[in-house]
Design a protein around this nucleic acid. Structure first.
Lengths: 354, 354
DNA sequence: CTTTTTTGCACAATCGATGGTGCAAATAAT
DNA sequence: ATTATTTGCACCATCGATTGTGCAAAAAAG
């Protein structure tokens, strides 16, 4: 009964085999047959034939006709990082549970690439788009708007579509505070000029985090200075260079380090590879983003875990509203103490056999 | 000139606006117009109109007609792990450089889900499929074969389609050897019963790695035992339980640990969270998979970095052959010494501004 | 045994793009 | 001035599904 190497069966094939019209076959197979008052026995006949011939609908044809595809897109800056890959994992699970097909693509934080990618997705009539960390969410909004595609910003907000983001300001406050607290019963308490922020650039998230960092620093250490802020972009290499430069200048690292993202943290790793253990004997790192391995490094690493589950859940909720308000929804992130291995989306995957 | 909120322009719209037929418009816009001997001036006229009205082709319609979509799929077991997310990143770059649109989906290492996902991809007429770590590559092959879709196995081999995988046997040998060597100038050399393998299951990769592990152990330590092999599946939780059980029984961890994948390594992290630093004072870990953060843990971690770049490059090469031989291509992985921060696909992304 | 209602399905237009075919008009050859 | 070529484009069927409409036959009502 299997068709080896042949073309896929279409409703027309089944139409001939069953003696019914193609429209009847279509109705039976897409579930609208009761509405169309098709006899139960006819439906069964066709369903059996469909199974025997391994019929599956051509979703391009269906999409073309109904101008909906069943695809839901997630636009990511990059894959290769625990924050985003874990978001992708959660996204997939949630989309599937809604009976749709998830599609994840990355655009390398490149505005051009972002727009081009979204254009492509739109040309495939994706039904909904989740825009995570777009450099220019409002342009992306323009495209979606014009195409009538429901969309929502995640992680980085836009001004024209609803956004669900981490409370970066609060998160940064928590993190900065935790770094400082960590020195409470150290031999020498942390001096204000020993607490630096590295990484990030001029995006909403970085700005908020920097604000939180400064505010806490002012409140707890009564100190504020631009010199303590080193935005190095989102590149491991630039971050490494910044650390090297600092080390060259000062002969040591700052004892308190606020690192803007796990990507920047990789810059610190590169620096570490060049320097002996002792260089890091007395430092405390706070990293905005959680990475399980990062949490167990040889020095205390405090991390912020952004709640991608809640963010996505909220986003799904909003995207289903008919006319969601264009506002920013803040999701509280979580402070993760050193040496903590949190569960992740992988844990909900059942692992058959062994 | 912008169309706000309106429907997207089609070739028919442009056909009316230009006074040409739809087929002429089509030819001009898909680049076949010279072949069709369309006047240059006509082409320009239409191209201008297209730009003014922001025309982009409906790719579902094109795909329906030409039964090719321009989509290239990558089927992943999971996203949330550096090995696979880095593969996704590399994949994206390579597919884009071929002028196609990458689509990454995960199937949770669930055979049912895998088949369903591939069915869906096929229904969208994807042009090519890269199957990474499928639990049942040969069934997936069946679907692709029937639909006439070029496909190739990565990471885990199948018997019916060409496969590109890591040389897991050699990798495991290298890794095991490196672990043993690491104890050469230790106070007490590593005893055979102190070297254990944790993680993995009954898949090709695990079997090969176990084989390599055993062979080296026999060669260098003249010892072989089933007790030293603890396949715990690909679940952090199961792995943690295995460590806990071992610790409960022996009062300590094995000094030499071969961990089958970074996912299993996360099980060790969970164990670590429950136990003080001293527990790990004397151990050496070898992990099959590279994770930059994992490389800097407080004890020596030797890692194997699988060469996803080469694997994908080879896979692309093969998938373009008309009739690629059904054989397994081995790609050599790389041994990564402790405290090493390698560059990754993210490094080729230019980071604009700061 | 009519008339009305319900049941069960077929027909045909449509979604947007592609590509084979054919045919005038323009140009070149004789 | 005629015939042969070439140029430039229009026409139309097609890909596979969806959906509004219409119409027989069967069942129910009278």
């Amino acid at each position: 009964m299997k068709q080896q190497g042949k073309k896929k069966a279409t409703i027309y094939d089944l139409s001939i085999l069953s003696g019914c019209s193609a429209s009847t076959v279509s109705a039976v197979l897409n579930g609208t047959w009761r509405k169309r008052r098709i006899k139960e026995s006819t439906a069964e006949l066709i369903q059996n034939l469909a199974e025997q011939h391994q019929y599956t609908a051509n979703l391009q044809a269906r999409g073309l006709r109904s101008s909906r595809s069943g695809l839901v897109g997630l636009l990511l800056p990059v894959h290769d990082n625990r924050y985003f890959s874990s978001m992708a994992q959660t996204f997939e699970a949630q989309v599937r549970s809604h009976g749709k097909c998830p599609v994840v693509v990355s655009a390398s934080r490149d505005p051009q690439e972002e727009l081009a990618t979204v254009e492509t997705l739109i040309s495939y009539s994706i039904d909904e788009l989740f825009i995570a960390g777009a450099t220019d969410p409002d342009s992306v909004h323009g495209l979606c708007e014009a195409a009538g595609i429901r969309h929502i910003n995640i992680d980085l907000p836009g001004t024209k579509a609803p956004s669900v983001i981490s409370d970066n300001y609060q998160g940064a406050r928590m993190l900065t505070q935790a770094i400082i607290k960590r020195f409470d019963d150290a031999a020498a308490p942390l001096k204000p000029e020993e607490l630096f922020l590295f990484g990030g650039r001029n995006d909403h998230a970085s700005r908020e985090r920097i604000k939180g960092f400064r505010d806490i620093k002012r409140e707890l250490l009564d100190h504020d200075s631009d010199a303590c802020i080193q935005p190095t972009g989102y590149s491991p290499d630039m971050t490494q260079k910044a650390f090297e430069a600092f080390y060259e200048r000062e002969g040591k690292l700052p004892r308190g380090l606020f690192i803007n993202s796990s990507i920047n943290f990789e810059g610190l790793l590169r620096f570490m590879a060049q320097h002996p253990h002792e260089t890091f004997a007395d430092i405390v790192v706070g990293c905005y983003d959680y990475d399980p391995f990062g949490s167990f490094l040889p020095f205390p690493v405090i991390m912020i875990r952004q709640d991608t589950e809640s963010m996505l859940a909220k986003a799904f909720e909003l995207i289903e509203e008919t006319r969601p308000a264009v506002k920013i929804h803040l999701i509280q992130p979580e402070l993760v103490h050193p040496r903590t291995a949190l569960k992740g989306p992988l844990d909900s995957i059942r692992d058959i056999d062994a």
